[in-house]
Simulated scan of single mutants.
Amino acid sequence: MSDKVLMKGNEAIAEAAIKAGCRYFFGYPITPQNEIPAYMSKRMPKVDGVYLQAESEVAAINMVYGAAGAGARVMTSSSSPGISLKQEGISYIIGSDLPCVIVNIVRGGPGLGGIQPAQSDYFQAVKGGAHGDYNTVVLAPSTVQEAVDLMTDAFDIADMYRMPVMVLGDGMLGQMMEPVEFKAQKGRDLKPKDWATTGTQNQRSKNVVNSLFIDPQVLEKLNFERYERYKLIEQNEVKYEMTDCDDADVVLVAYGTTARIAKTAMKSARAEGYKVGLIRPITLWPFPVEAFQKAAKTAKAFLTVEMSMGQMVEDVRLAVNGEKPVHFYGRTGGMVPTPAAIVEEIKKLSGGEK
């Protein structure tokens, strides 16, 4: 008997977060992620958790800041314009070395844009949409099941390295329904949160949560220490998928739901005799540079496919480092690439019909 259940992506993400130990959720409604806070509002009271709809996205992220400072497993979710409003708070959380999980179900922009799926928040997520020197671990699931599976890792990575982790999806992932299984996952061995502001009980010195450091030497030292942690993350937390790249002349590059469309195009092109592979980054930061260095040894060209005007393509070009040409095909504003259009791009790069 199967233990799988049919769930909408947003609701599955919320349930997976609860099963990963999340007991505090602060958010504000915005399409196309509304099912996450709606689901949390029903489930959190049943697991002795806290759900609170804040008066704004700015308030929500600062509530996350407070709960994270007390050592709680805490999450917020939003969609593109809402994530923009949270950026100042995200920088404060990073500057205070606190763990949390942030889910962004991306919609078309800029501005209020539209409510259709997009990937145009890549720069904001990966390059840092807030102020200061920092990185955020960014996970990009391509299926509802993968989103479920990554939630435990998201909270564990946040706790292990004391930093926010962003789960970057899009309107398709959030709104589609797929069968999912909530597998028992063994979490990581994590250190006690002896830095948390849980009260001293007159048994230890007080802890202080703070991101303000007036002495530049102190602030520089903290930033250096933070980047040493980032080096460990780059060594230990890179995730990606490579498909049929060993003999590929053209390697497609795509993440999230776009990678599913690209995989269909890859199979169609191979059926017509074109040698095509696919690299799917699962961690957008840290970026899987080694996958591209390996593929560049045999591939003739790379084709990056995105639901944007071209953002990840810059990281692909950096990773390939000029060894092979990197091309781009994208749709934007909520428009979704089709497998047929991607196949046409593959044919152009391969010199036309076989």
Rank of each mutant, 00 (worst) to 15 (best):
I279V: 04
S78P: 11
L139P: 00
T298W: 08
T152R: 00
N62T: 07
E35R: 15
S268L: 06
R162H: 15
T76A: 12
Y51F: 15
V101Y: 07
R317Q: 10
V144E: 06
I342P: 05
G171N: 06
D247H: 07
Y230K: 15
A340N: 11
T200V: 08
D189M: 05
R43D: 08
V336L: 04
G334R: 01
R162W: 13
V101L: 05
A14W: 03
I36T: 15
S268R: 00
E146R: 02
G82V: 04
G330E: 02
L112Q: 13
D315G: 06
A68Q: 09
L6H: 04
S142M: 04
T197N: 01
C100R: 02
A296D: 04
P81G: 12
Y134T: 02
V218Y: 10
L168R: 06
V253M: 05
S350M: 12
I90Q: 08
A67I: 10
E146M: 02
L284M: 12
L284A: 03
A118N: 02
G89D: 00
R204D: 02
S120C: 14
A184K: 02
M172V: 07
M335I: 05
K347T: 10
E344V: 06
K4A: 05
G89T: 04
G352N: 15
T338H: 13
M312C: 02
A125K: 01
P288F: 09
G199L: 10
M7F: 10
A14F: 14
G113A: 06
Q145D: 11
L112C: 08
A67V: 10
H131S: 15
C245S: 14
S80P: 00
P286N: 02
V238T: 09
K183Q: 12
K297M: 04
A67T: 12
D156W: 05
D133P: 04
R204L: 10
A60G: 11
G109K: 03
L168Q: 02
